[in-house]
């Protein structure tokens, strides 16, 4: 893909509602592909004596689902807040949609913070419409979308009830609707799945993927690496305020190499005595797990096994999990998993 991405929203109302510079007939120009949706350069943020984010470079391509992963207190929330211009960095620069003026981009961004509340005394429809108005929608339009959105998640009949009467699960739906009501080009979600019931997790994922198909870029933070692994194309791993690695999940795994082999066989195990190929062996009952030396060819091991006359029932290259890679990298970098807390991070 080169040049411009063109995205047909198929929603004439939205086209009308969009500012002129975002309209080209029925086709919306989202931005040049060669500028990432978000770009951070050397971003550093300190709170008192603690460094929450250290010299962070980040590029988040258009239209991707990007995961910011790391343990609690690694600096994820601070990074998101800096991207959203809620707090300013001590050093470094932030570009969103190619502009350093994030303020001007606010109407194109939807943010779901980890601490997400609602005004208890407002009705659901009124509340969502209010969120829409904050993002530049006209009240009438915002109200119509609020009702449509509530309908779509099965809360249509509760639209005029006060939020205080909602169950936790219903409130979670309403909160999420509030973030996507204005159909943002960039969604920023801080621990979006924490505390959700399983049905809402599925709903959220579905709605996120819908937004992505509509061309939106999605940035989410999570300490649940498995979540990111399932949902994100790209991830950035942070530990102790420092980036450990980032890139495509596929590439990260490939780079980590398929060095682990699950092996089941009958016969003489002498072929496993191969210090030129094998770094480590661990027995797992029905099979052994073999870690190859870096650069060693698994095929060479297989050949030796066959030659030794062993009867091989399983020889499988195991893909390392992101969690394993993360732990390895973090340990290599000498970063502990739980240093520095984000608790009082707003204290400047």
């Amino acid at each position: 893909m080169e040049g411009w991405i063109r995205q047909n929203e198929g929603n004439p109302q939205y086209i009308d509602g969009a500012p002129a510079w975002r309209r080209v007939g029925a086709v919306r120009i989202i931005g040049a592909v060669n500028t990432p949706a978000i770009r951070l350069r050397g971003v550093t943020k300190r709170f008192d004596r603690k460094t929450a984010v250290r010299d962070l470079d980040l590029e988040i391509p258009h239209g991707s689902i990007y995961g910011l992963i790391g343990p609690n207190g690694a600096g994820k929330t601070t990074t998101l807040r800096i991207i959203l211009d809620i707090i300013g960095p001590d050093a470094g620069s932030v570009d969103v949609f190619g502009s350093s003026n994030v303020e001007a981009m606010r109407q194109r961004i939807g943010y779901l913070p980890e601490e997400r509340g609602l005004y208890q005394k407002m009705t659901a429809a009124d509340h969502l419409a209010f969120f829409g108005q904050l993002k530049g929608l006209k009240r009438k339009e915002a109200l119509a979308r609020a009702r449509a959105g509530l309908d779509a998640v099965g809360l249509g009949d509760r639209a005029d009830d006060k939020v205080e009467t909602f169950s936790k699960g219903m409130a979670q739906k309403a909160q999420f609707l509030g973030v996507i009501l204005h159909q943002p080009d960039l969604l920023v979600l801080d621990e979006p799945f924490s505390g959700l019931d399983p049905l809402n997790v599925e709903l959220f994922k579905r709605l996120l993927q819908e937004r992505q198909r509509a061309g939106a870029t999605i940035l989410l933070s999570t300490h649940l690496i498995e979540d990111a692994e399932r949902l994100c194309e790209r991830v950035c791993m942070i530990a102790g305020a420092t980036k450990v690695l980032d890139g495509r999940v596929r590439d990260i795994k490939a780079a980590a190499g398929r060095r682990d082999i699950a092996l089941s066989f009958e016969g003489n195990p002498t072929f496993l005595d191969a210090p030129d190929l094998i770094e480590d062996i661990s027995a797992h009952g029905t099979y052994v797990e073999v870690r190859m030396l870096e650069g060693a060819d698994p095929q060479a091991l297989l050949r030796r096994a066959v030659d030794s006359g062993a009867l091989i029932s399983r020889f499988e290259l195991i893909e390392p999990s992101l969690r394993q890679i993360f732990i390895e990298k973090a340990t290599e970098a000498g970063l502990s998993h739980e240093d520095e807390s984000e608790d009082d991070e707003a204290a400047a």
Partner: peptide, 17 residues
């Protein structure tokens, strides 16, 4: 106080100054 107690303030300040 209502902003803080209803955990809504962060959404607000991501939308306006």
């Amino acid at each position: 106080l209502e902003e803080k107690q209803s955990d809504i303030v962060e959404i607000m300040v991501s939308s306006l100054r």
